Simulated scan of single mutants.
Amino acid sequence: MASLQDDHDAVVERFQPTSGRATGWMAVVLATLVVVAGVVYVDDGFPLWVTALGLLIGILAWATMIRPALWATHEHLVMRNLAETVHIRLAAVEEMAVRQVLAVRAADRRFVSTVVGRTWRKALTSRHRPGGLADDAALAPTEGMHYADFVENRLYELVDKARSRAGLRAGSREQLALPDAVRREPAWLPIGLLAGAALFLVVSLLL
């Protein structure tokens, strides 16, 4: 039983971010420099609130631009966002599209990941495919394909396979009734860090 569970939780595809990482790391580095300067020059009158603000900005940049991740296991699409990690059963996915962000509809709810997205212009010209890819060989991933297109096609492929294994049809009553279609786990680390940094900033402004 444990081995079967491990197989289901094994990562079959880890999707790389299409934007934001470089900006996020730059923000974290600059914020770190501000915090270090605040610690080093605290006795020279360096404003405490500036140190606190730098800390908050650094944590926020990490939580919103670096921490988010997207991957798929045999059974789930996993979105790690700022405040939570969402596990969506692939067979339960009702609709999905990559526009400026990845939007997935499951269990009559909409979930968004900022990890993968298209530019505004590319999002306007891309096609939305409500169905699967089983009969659309032209949309299979090919060399030179835009990465966002590859991600969308790969996700549709994984969803189609999961539906086939479960014997489900998209939009069917059985699909909508799937148990444990979505599982959400709060991300206590970034929530706690952001709350602590915000409290530090408030206290520093009051001193």
Results as ranks from 00 to 15, higher is better:
residue 55 L to Y: 08
residue 58 G to M: 04
residue 124 L to F: 12
residue 112 V to Q: 04
residue 151 V to R: 04
residue 169 R to S: 14
residue 42 V to P: 05
residue 3 S to P: 13
residue 199 L to M: 03
residue 110 R to C: 13
residue 124 L to Q: 15
residue 152 E to R: 01
residue 185 E to H: 15
residue 132 G to A: 04
residue 21 R to C: 04
residue 18 T to V: 01
residue 136 D to A: 13
residue 36 V to P: 09
residue 131 G to R: 09
residue 40 V to F: 14
residue 31 A to M: 11
residue 51 T to F: 03
residue 83 A to G: 15
residue 88 I to K: 00
residue 102 L to P: 06
residue 200 F to D: 02
residue 191 I to V: 11
residue 63 A to Y: 03
residue 32 T to P: 14
residue 193 L to D: 14
residue 154 R to E: 06
residue 113 S to Y: 09
residue 152 E to N: 02
residue 167 G to H: 08
residue 72 A to V: 01
residue 39 V to Q: 12
residue 117 G to E: 00
residue 50 V to F: 10
residue 89 R to F: 11
residue 161 K to M: 14
residue 104 V to N: 04
residue 109 R to S: 10
residue 188 W to D: 06
residue 160 D to K: 00
residue 57 I to P: 13
residue 151 V to Q: 02
residue 125 T to H: 07
residue 128 H to N: 10
residue 29 V to I: 08
residue 69 A to H: 05
residue 174 E to L: 00
residue 135 D to R: 11
residue 88 I to D: 05
residue 150 F to N: 07
residue 150 F to D: 13
residue 154 R to G: 08
residue 181 A to I: 00
residue 188 W to M: 09
residue 198 A to F: 05
residue 198 A to K: 02
residue 163 R to C: 15
residue 196 G to H: 00
residue 54 G to V: 05
residue 170 A to Y: 12
residue 155 L to C: 00
residue 154 R to H: 08
residue 196 G to F: 05
residue 40 V to A: 13
residue 66 I to H: 09
residue 11 V to E: 00
residue 97 A to N: 11
residue 168 L to W: 10
residue 184 R to M: 08
residue 90 L to M: 13
residue 57 I to G: 13
residue 4 L to C: 02
residue 113 S to N: 02
residue 68 P to Y: 08
residue 117 G to N: 05
residue 92 A to T: 05
residue 143 E to T: 04
residue 145 M to R: 06
residue 30 L to K: 08
residue 133 L to Y: 11
residue 161 K to G: 12
residue 10 A to P: 04
residue 140 A to C: 06
residue 198 A to S: 01
residue 144 G to W: 11
residue 196 G to L: 07
residue 126 S to P: 15
residue 45 G to I: 03
residue 196 G to W: 01
residue 33 L to P: 11
